[in-house]
Amino acid sequence: MIFSMTGYAIAIQETPHGSFTLEIRSVNNRYLDVQFRLPDDFRKQEPAMRELLATQLSRGKVECRLNFSPSTQAESDQQLDNALLEKLLLLQRTIKTHHPAAPSLTVAEILKWPGMLGNDHSPIEESGEIGIALLQTALEDLKAARIREGDKLKAILLERLNQIRQLLIAASPRIPTLIAAFEEKLRTRLEEILGTQEDERIHQEISLFAGKIDVDEELSRLQAHLDEVERILNKGGSVGKRLDFMMQELHREANTIGSKSVDLEISRISMELKVIIEQMREQVQNIE
């Protein structure tokens, strides 16, 4: 299988305290780059979550976001501890007596004070290893999405390989035709200028011309590279970096063919090759 680096998944878990939602999305990247957005009470689970993610993915920029929405019932059950509030305010007045410039507690700070709402434990903290469980579920969906996208990329790349092969078939007969046309033109010119045809000189000139425009070696290497790309695609796995290297090799050969061209059709074929290879390279950037 071919794995895309692009994907999205979401996992939701309902608890008596509220709803936990974990979203994970990934895009292409040269290496594995993981970013977490977690509630403070989940920070202690981050190392384990990061390790789990690293065992499942090898490349991509991955963002993992966990949100908690308290249930209406949980919020209504919260009761303000009036005794603790009075004690806290008394301590504040005492401090201000000695330090008048000290800032006063805000309402948000008072409500977050341990035990102020009758529970010293965060509902998130009481939920144990739910972050790990949600991540495992989301990762399975993410991998499935990346496989589906990878199948599409593979089909696109195989189609591009066939297009390149068709161009190579069109290019192969052009060189002998060009050499034959050059020989005929040379014989005619010599006949016009010298009144005779010097076979030895014609042979030398044809050899030089053929050496300059001969792209058989480049065409052969291109065909070998195409076979290797197809083999890599069929093998599957984490092949993105290998395919990226092969795109460079394909482009190098296509560029050489263009530089040797003395024929408009060969020049056109070279340009078409480079366009298709660039399209392939863009797709390959999304493969793990």
Rank of each mutant, 00 (worst) to 15 (best):
residue 103 P to N: 12
residue 106 T to S: 15
residue 106 T to R: 11
residue 107 V to L: 14
residue 109 E to H: 08
residue 109 E to Y: 09
residue 110 I to T: 04
residue 112 K to L: 03
residue 113 W to D: 00
residue 113 W to Q: 11
residue 114 P to N: 01
residue 115 G to T: 11
residue 119 N to Q: 08
residue 120 D to W: 08
residue 123 P to I: 05
residue 124 I to M: 13
residue 126 E to N: 12
residue 126 E to C: 10
residue 129 E to K: 12
residue 131 G to H: 09
residue 131 G to C: 11
residue 132 I to Y: 10
residue 132 I to C: 11
residue 134 L to Y: 01
residue 134 L to N: 01
residue 134 L to W: 03
residue 136 Q to F: 07
residue 137 T to S: 15
residue 137 T to F: 01
residue 137 T to L: 12
residue 137 T to V: 12
residue 138 A to I: 07
residue 139 L to S: 06
residue 142 L to Y: 04
residue 144 A to R: 14
residue 145 A to V: 08
residue 145 A to H: 11
residue 145 A to L: 01
residue 147 I to W: 07
residue 148 R to K: 14
residue 148 R to F: 03
residue 148 R to L: 10
residue 148 R to G: 09
residue 150 G to E: 03
residue 151 D to P: 01
residue 152 K to P: 06
residue 152 K to R: 14
residue 154 K to T: 07
residue 154 K to C: 10
residue 154 K to P: 06
residue 155 A to M: 01
residue 157 L to G: 03
residue 158 L to P: 04
residue 159 E to W: 00
residue 159 E to R: 07
residue 159 E to H: 12
residue 162 N to M: 12
residue 163 Q to G: 04
residue 164 I to F: 01
residue 167 L to A: 06
residue 169 I to A: 15
residue 169 I to Y: 08
residue 169 I to V: 14
residue 171 A to F: 02
residue 171 A to H: 04
residue 173 P to E: 00
residue 173 P to Q: 09
residue 174 R to C: 03
residue 175 I to R: 05
residue 175 I to D: 01
residue 176 P to N: 08
residue 176 P to S: 03
residue 177 T to D: 15
residue 178 L to H: 01
residue 180 A to D: 13
residue 183 E to M: 02
residue 183 E to L: 05
residue 184 E to D: 15
residue 186 L to T: 07
residue 187 R to H: 09
residue 187 R to D: 10
residue 188 T to Q: 15
residue 190 L to E: 02
residue 191 E to N: 14
residue 192 E to G: 05
residue 193 I to V: 13
residue 194 L to W: 10
residue 194 L to N: 07
residue 196 T to C: 11
residue 196 T to H: 13
residue 196 T to I: 11
residue 196 T to V: 14
residue 199 D to E: 15
residue 203 H to T: 12
residue 205 E to V: 00
residue 206 I to D: 00
residue 207 S to M: 12
residue 207 S to N: 12
residue 208 L to K: 01
residue 208 L to E: 05
residue 208 L to G: 06
residue 209 F to I: 02
residue 209 F to P: 04
residue 210 A to S: 13
residue 211 G to Y: 03
residue 213 I to T: 03
